[in-house]
């Protein structure tokens, strides 16, 4: 099986630890992922802010870089949702046939990380060890966009040493929303404040999610408040092992 890692521009640029964790986790499970060098950004920021032409250009680049693989693994519910939900619409409205063909080829083979682990590899115990108190935030696009369901929690429950605590109001949006966080900064901060309060109520030392963009937002406020709670992408917890850390 030829597997491509679509690491996402946010992880590539700001959170390389997450990308490394995915590579090592997959390797531990016997999968050597390829990193197609031409990939950059899925185009979600442009699409969702109303810049459709740029989004189409980036979508075309992305499917060109990712086509031909048996599976594309994305460590982001949001970017996976962009590819699966919005690419077919962008292809349909652009009228460019080779683009539509590439989208039709790539979309059914695109998996968010936990989908790939649970559905494709059939693994729920990835052999991780993480002796910390953790709470999980299901991000909107992983929850309502691509319907990850209980896959992330199923994986987390198998992690040895972990103390998993439920997050109150978990299904509510954290208020990130891409450029929403800038264009409606006050409402975004108000939403984040409630999410932060819920996280603190759990007494967890780590907040984890399947999207670093949302974690950057919630973590940014947790940090500003000197709360002492750190945020970690799910992949980094799943990659942690008793003998060797992530790095």
């Amino acid at each position: 099986m030829r597997v491509a890692l679509f690491v996402t521009c946010v992880n590539d640029t700001l959170f390389p630890d997450t990308g490394r964790a995915v590579v090592r986790l997959l390797r531990r499970l016997g999968v050597e992922a390829d990193f197609p060098r031409a990939q950059t950004c899925c185009g979600q920021m442009h699409a969702n802010t109303g810049y459709r032409d740029e989004a189409v250009r980036l979508a075309r680049r992305s499917v060109a870089a990712l086509r031909g693989y048996d599976a594309v693994v994305v460590p982001s519910g949001s970017c996976a949702a962009m590819i699966r939900e919005q690419y077919p619409k962008l292809a349909g409205s652009s009228g460019v046939t080779p683009f539509a063909d590439a989208v039709a080829q790539v979309v059914p083979r695109t998996y968010e990380l936990t989908e790939f682990l649970v559905d494709v590899l059939g693994v729920t115990d990835v052999g991780a060890y993480f002796p910390h108190r953790v709470t999980y935030h299901p991000t909107c696009h992983s929850l309502r966009g691509i319907h990850l369901g209980d896959r992330p929690l199923t994986l987390l429950r198998q992690v040895r040493g972990i103390e998993l605590v439920p997050l109150p109001g978990a299904e509510e949006c954290c208020g990130f929303g891409g450029t929403f966080a800038l264009k409606n900064a006050d409402v975004s901060a108000a939403m984040c404040a409630d999410k932060v309060r819920a996280v603190l109520d759990t007494g967890a030392e780590v907040l984890c999610a399947a999207d670093n963009s949302c974690l950057m937002h919630i973590g940014g406020m947790l940090g500003r408040q000197k709360s002492g709670v750190r945020v970690m992408h799910l992949a980094e917890i799943l990659c942690s092992a008793e003998t060797a850390g992530v790095r």
Binding site: N48, R144, C173, F176, G177, V187, S188
Partner: peptide, 8 residues
């Protein structure tokens, strides 16, 4: 733009 596109 008055939405985070959370889908609820």
């Amino acid at each position: 733009y008055a939405s985070s596109l959370c889908g609820a």
